[in-house]
Design a protein around this nucleic acid. Structure first.
Lengths: 206, 206
DNA sequence: ACCTGAACACCGTTCAAGT
DNA sequence: ACCTGAACACCGTTCAAGT
């Protein structure tokens, strides 16, 4: 069992980088990105306060790495969601929207790091590219819609931007807890995301 | 000239509270909310590091006060924008949307504090109430739209939530700098906001 | 190659003491 | 009533030194 062999706690950590990323996500989950401290991350992993600097240039780089992994998973979730919509364009867009918000619900911490302003995406070229990849999924879908005659003609990236705004706004408002009725009762966001997608398709129809 | 009389720099600051709020906004404008430091705010105003604590319980309270003023101005801007739309419901909603984004463009720092996650709205009852007031403007407009038969029947707060998501998402994406074409060319967001509002009206029409 | 200990220049916050 | 000075327990980051 090589698994156990790897387990020996030694001077050198098995995969410190990975452990740091996970600890960071755990802290964000329990206290928000602003409470994230590199010293705390190190402490949780059981390593000295200086150790993280051998894997990340600084705190910002650590957050960027968390966001990077988030965007990769996010893009996959969008693609998978869209596929669940089958062959009809409107259904594909509806499920893509549902997947967007479902990801937010399932990974609030990741989304907070990705879009919460704690890390400036354009400061990190690789991250920017990955984030653009997620946007590209939406853009493709808009092109699909135009080709099928379901969406109006014109600049597809403008359509994508409007659809993105809708879903992004919904996800962010949910993260901020703004989506609770006066009674404090939570809303079924995923269902709301489907309605939002339908509204977008109608609103941007040809 | 009583103005000059007030100007004497004394042990007591004229209106330290106001000065602190303005300095805070200036810091956010130049370096973002995460860079805001109570010591720096005090330094800029020329007061000891402990002085702010006589006006705000802590850093969070200072940020909440900034957000509070932001929401008051924001609500006024939404109401004024909507009025510019005249009497036709669709035009009123279009201008409300334009005003939303125009406020973001004119007051990026305020918006960042209001919605950037640096302050948790629901932690501050007064702030929550004021923020709800802004949402109420949108809700009223949806009711107007339903009464005029322009918007579909059903829960008006759901319609408002969807419209809010669209505008909020657009404003946030703009703040995050996500609205730059591949060339880096900026988009006319305010115009985009009008298109967004029109899409919402179409998408949520009866 | 990877990690630690100690150090430096910062923070938020408190509190007795000043005006 | 409002403000300061000094203090405490924290941070981010660096760097020589250890394994």
């Amino acid at each position: 069992m090589p698994r156990a062999a790897v387990k020996k706690r030694a001077y050198h950590h098995g995969d410190l980088r990975r452990a740091l990323l996970e600890a960071a996500l755990a802290i964000v989950a329990s206290a928000g990105p602003s409470a994230l401290t590199i010293r705390d991350v190190a402490r949780r992993v059981g390593v000295s306060q200086a150790a993280p600097y051998h894997h990340f240039a600084d705190k910002d780089a650590l957050l960027a790495a968390v966001a990077q992994e988030g965007f990769v998973a996010f893009t996959a979730a969008l693609v998978a969601g869209r596929a669940r919509g089958g062959t009809k364009v409107a259904a594909r867009l509806r499920e893509l929207g549902a997947a967007y918000v479902a990801f937010a619900v399932a990974n609030p911490s990741a989304l907070r790091v990705m879009f919460g302003g704690a890390v400036c995406i354009s400061d990190h070229p690789t991250l920017k590219q990955t984030a653009d990849g997620a946007f590209a999924v939406l853009l493709e879908s808009m092109l699909e819609g135009q080709k099928a005659g379901v969406l109006r003609r014109g600049d597809p990236s403008e359509l994508a931007l409007l659809a993105w705004s809708m879903l992004h706004g919904l996800a962010m408002l949910w993260l901020d807890g703004a989506l609770h009725g006066p009674t404090g009762a939570p809303v079924d966001v995923e269902q709301l995301a489907r309605k939002a997608s339908d509204a977008i398709v109608r609103g941007l129809s040809g």
